[in-house]
Deep mutational scan, measured.
Amino acid sequence: AQASVVANQLIPINTYLTLVMMRSEVVTPVGIPAEDIPRLVSMQVNRAVPLGTTLMPDMVKGYA
């Protein structure tokens, strides 16, 4: 199964992502692939992302 990117903490709206904020986990539904974690660093979330939430492409500015 493919691992997705999951929030490792509460990520406030407009926060620039860093490695410590994200982890990879096999979840349903599938979100942003874990292999894209390096690409996500320094990208901004466009909403608050609670701890344990799967990151979806529409949550990250400029990802989709």
Rank of each mutant, 00 (worst) to 15 (best):
Asp36Ile: 07
Arg39Tyr: 15
Val30Tyr: 15
Ser4Tyr: 04
Val5Met: 02
Ile37His: 03
Asn8Phe: 05
Thr53Asp: 11
Ile11Ser: 02
Val49Gly: 00
Val30Thr: 13
Ile13Cys: 04
Gly52Arg: 05
Ser4His: 01
Pro38Trp: 06
Ser42Ile: 05
Leu55Met: 11
Leu51Ala: 10
Ala1Ile: 14
Pro33Trp: 11
Asp36Glu: 08
Met22Lys: 00
Gly52Glu: 12
Gln44Thr: 07
Asn8Trp: 06
Ser4Leu: 02
Leu40Phe: 02
Gly62Pro: 05
Ala1Leu: 15
Met43Tyr: 11
Gly31Lys: 01
Met56Leu: 06
Ala3Cys: 05
Ala3Phe: 06
Leu19Arg: 05
Gln9Ile: 14
Val45Asn: 07
Asp36Gly: 06
Ile11Leu: 09
Gln44Met: 13
Leu10Ala: 12
Val60Leu: 15
Val41Cys: 03
Val6Gly: 01
Arg47Tyr: 13
Val60Pro: 02
Gly52Asn: 13
Val6Arg: 05
Ala48Arg: 06
Ser42Asp: 09
Thr54His: 04
Val5Trp: 02
Leu10Tyr: 15
Ile37Tyr: 02
Thr18Ile: 07
Ala7Gln: 00
Gly62Ser: 09
Leu51Ser: 12
Leu10Lys: 10
Leu19Ser: 11
Ile32Gly: 01
Gly52Asp: 15
Pro57Lys: 06
Thr15Leu: 03
Val20Ile: 12
Met22Thr: 03
Ser24Cys: 03
Ala34Tyr: 11
Gly52Lys: 06
Val5Pro: 01
Thr15Trp: 08
Asn14Gln: 08
Val26Asp: 15
Lys61Trp: 08
Pro50Ile: 08
Ile32Val: 11
Val41Met: 07
Thr53Leu: 06
Asn14Phe: 09
Glu25Asn: 07
Arg47Trp: 04
Met22His: 00
Ala1Asn: 07
Leu55Ile: 13
Leu55Val: 12
Gln9Ser: 10
Val45Leu: 06
Gln2Gly: 15
Thr15Glu: 15
Val26Ile: 07
Thr53Gln: 12
Ile13Trp: 07
Ile32Ala: 03
Thr53Ile: 12
Thr18His: 14
Asn14Ile: 02
Leu17Asn: 00
Val26Gly: 05
Met22Trp: 02
Asn14Leu: 15
Pro50Asp: 12
Val49Glu: 01
Asn46Gly: 12
Ala1Asp: 15
Val6Asn: 01
Thr54Lys: 04
Arg23Asn: 07
Leu10Gly: 14
Leu17Gly: 00
Val26Thr: 09
Pro57Phe: 06
Gly52Tyr: 13
Gln9Cys: 04
Tyr63Arg: 04
Gly31Asn: 01
Ile32Met: 04
Met43Asp: 05
Arg39Lys: 11
Ala48Tyr: 14
Met56Ser: 12
